[in-house]
Design a protein around this nucleic acid. Structure first.
Length: 285
DNA sequence: ATGCGGACCTGTTAGC
DNA sequence: TGCTAACAGGTCCGCA
């Protein structure tokens, strides 16, 4: 499941191979993603030069410059959905089941071999690829997003203020991308466990002091996960592309019925906003 | 505006 | 053993 750390790792992993090259070919073998890929997209991006890749929330932004019209801002927005992955592969690599797209960059004069291709694989097809013009951060899909969790804009004060009078469970609140981006089910579960906050508690009934602790932990956990992902950058070339963050130790997620690591109470499972939620009924209040 | 639930999709696992 | 049903999850959308 691509969470923010995996998208960040993907971005860092593929950027050095792609930036500065042009799009020779966008090969669409399966256009039926979360939103269908327009038929003319390959023509639209052909020949454009790939700029600096950037991650925003779980979106990967790929600016594409038209050298005839350098003032125009345009490019691609990738989203990996639930089961998507982007990987650099050799042009000879056979297409596997659920490989849907491939972006082939043009060779540079200094290249002695064909450049690696960017291939998109996504069994569940929840991911998507969009073409944008103008400022990508103002794209309808991105403009209403909350702050990046690792930025200084993500503060306890912000969460506290925006949660007053809100009755939804705090877990659903921190998973709301208008509050903060990149906190998926795994990280919400873990952060609330470590903060000792009951995930079912109304967001509006949590003190500033407790939000301060929660924000600290979200930043800590995400930063650690990105660092782990960073150790597997080599997997993006020829490897299996599996992210490293699964290796991290999870205290609550996926441990329902097992003893709490702090107090040995059996961890409980419930559902919050259609999501499975594991918590310790003793430690989390 | 807020909060909830359904839809999308398919590989894996649980249950009969 | 073989079948069906539930489950996983990010994001969007419709409804009350």
């Amino acid at each position: 499941m691509p969470e923010l750390p995996e998208v960040e790792t993907t971005c860092r992993g593929v950027a050095p191979w792609l930036e500065g090259r042009s799009v020779e070919l966008l090969d669409v073998r399966e256009p039926r993603l979360r939103w269908p890929i327009p038929q003319n997209l390959p023509r639209q991006v052909h020949g454009l030069r790939i700029g600096t890749l950037q991650r925003r929330a779980k979106y990967l932004l790929m600016p594409l410059m038209d050298l005839q019209h350098p003032e125009r801002s345009q490019g691609l927005i990738w989203h990996l959905g639930m089961s998507g992955s982007l990987r650099l592969v050799s042009p000879q690599e056979p297409w596997k089941k659920h490989d849907h797209l491939q972006l082939t960059p043009s060779p540079l004069p200094s290249d002695t071999r064909p450049p690696l291709c960017l291939r998109y694989h996504d069994p569940r097809r929840f991911g998507f690829l969009l073409f944008y013009t103008g400022d990508p951060l103002l794209h309808p899909r991105l403009e209403k997003l909350g702050p990046e969790p690792l930025s200084d804009d993500f503060t306890a004060q912000r969460l506290y203020q925006r949660s007053r009078q809100r009755k939804l469970p705090v877990k659903a609140f921190i998973m709301d991308s208008a509050q903060v981006v990149g906190v998926g089910n795994i990280y919400a579960t873990e952060a609330l466990f470590r903060a000792g906050i009951d995930p079912r508690r109304a967001a509006g009934r949590i003190s500033l002091a407790r939000y301060t602790e929660l924000v600290k932990l979200i930043k800590l956990i995400l930063a650690a996960a990105i660092e782990q992902g960073g150790t597997t950058l080599r997997d993006f070339v020829g490897g299996d592309g599996k992210p490293g963050y699964f290796a991290q130790q999870l205290d609550a997620y996926g441990r329902a019925g097992q003893p709490c690591r702090k107090c040995s109470t059996v961890l409980q499972e419930t559902r919050i906003g259609q999501r499975s939620s594991v918590f310790c009924p003793q430690c989390q209040r």
